[in-house]
Amino acid sequence: MSKADTGDTAPSQRFDERAAKALTESMSVLDARTFSDLRDEEFLVVTPTGTYTVDAIAETCTCPDALHRAPDEGCKHQLRVAMARGERPIPGWVDCSAIDDGLGQHLSADPRIVTADGWTEVLDVR
């Protein structure tokens, strides 16, 4: 377990519409273990409307939102990758029944959720 950052103004603590979509919309995140054409820290995000490549090191995505609007916190695909890998903990107040069942399904890392006491733990969505 690790102590979560509790600063309300920290970017990682904001939870906007993109973050909500990243958590609830149907998306599959694939890494080099499941899709061999990818490099380390590169992910394929498959959605019902398209397939996008997220580079976690360069902090880029090939989707139109990332390419044309470049949101400060990243597009929903970048956020999905970060949440699925446990790099961005899910706020504890989130309705867990609304989380997409596929979150973290194809990755070796686990999504994490902030507990009431400010720690994080593995989120069991399966």
Rank of each mutant, 00 (worst) to 15 (best):
D55P: 02
H68N: 12
E73Q: 14
M27D: 00
F43V: 03
V45W: 10
R85N: 09
R33D: 14
T47L: 02
T51H: 07
F43W: 06
S28A: 12
P11T: 01
A10P: 01
A32P: 00
T53M: 11
V45F: 10
A19D: 11
R39F: 10
F15I: 04
R14A: 09
L67N: 04
A66S: 15
G86S: 05
E25L: 13
C63N: 07
F15Y: 13
D31E: 08
K76I: 04
T62Y: 07
R14P: 00
E73K: 07
R18T: 02
G86E: 02
K21Y: 09
G50E: 05
Q78A: 10
R85P: 00
L67E: 10
C63A: 06
A32R: 15
F43N: 01
D31A: 04
E73C: 06
K21F: 09
D16S: 10
P48D: 07
G74V: 03
C63G: 03
S26N: 12
L79P: 01
R39N: 12
G50C: 08
R33Q: 12
V54A: 04
P71Q: 05
T47Q: 04
T24F: 07
P11W: 08
C63M: 09
P71T: 06
E17P: 00
F15A: 03
G74N: 05
F15W: 15
Q78T: 05
A10V: 03
A58K: 15
S12Q: 15
D72P: 02
C75M: 05
M83S: 02
S12D: 10
P64Q: 05
A10K: 13
K76F: 07
S28G: 04
P64N: 04
A84Q: 00
E87W: 15
D55C: 09
E73V: 08
F43Q: 01
M27C: 13
C75P: 02
V81T: 06
G86P: 09
F43A: 00
C61S: 05
G74S: 04
E17I: 12
Y52N: 04
D37H: 10
R39T: 01
I57G: 00
S12E: 14
G86H: 06
R18S: 12
V46K: 13
A32D: 08
K76N: 02
P71A: 06
T24W: 08
E25N: 12
